[in-house]
């Protein structure tokens, strides 16, 4: 007789847990620079944006106020709608 176990997870695995593979390049991609609220994130992203612009890309920006909390849903929705690739700044 087979055994029955009950799923301890949020049962969202197939929806949320499989990230897309990383792109091999950013050409023709809509790029989002995401400030997660760590100190000096802006400084890093400004530098990154300048580099991307020199390569002909026009990245958009999104931010959340603190790294300690999840982003507001509207911020997530904005990035989903406006970006193919999101680059986050994880640094102090």
């Amino acid at each position: 007789m087979n055994q029955i176990l009950y799923d301890p997870t949020g049962e969202t695995n197939s929806v949320f847990r499989k990230p897309q593979s990383l792109p091999t390049n950013l050409w023709n991609k809509k790029v989002m620079l995401f400030d997660i609220g760590k100190p000096r994130s802006k400084e890093f992203l400004d530098y990154f944006e300048e580099n991307l612009r020199q390569k002909g890309l026009v990245p958009k920006r999104a931010a959340k106020p603190t790294n300690a909390k999840t982003a507001a849903q509207e911020v997530i929705d904005f990035m989903v709608k406006e970006a193919d690739v999101v680059i986050g700044a994880l640094s102090d």
């Binding site: 007789m1 087979n2 055994q3 029955i4 176990l5 009950y6 799923d7 301890p8 049962e11």
Partner: peptide
């Protein structure tokens, strides 16, 4: 219980399955 059930074989070790 509303959680989805996961059926494993009679001779499967449920600890290893977890």
């Amino acid at each position: 219980l509303n959680s989805r059930t996961i059926e494993i074989g009679e001779f499967d070790d449920p600890i290893e399955q977890a």
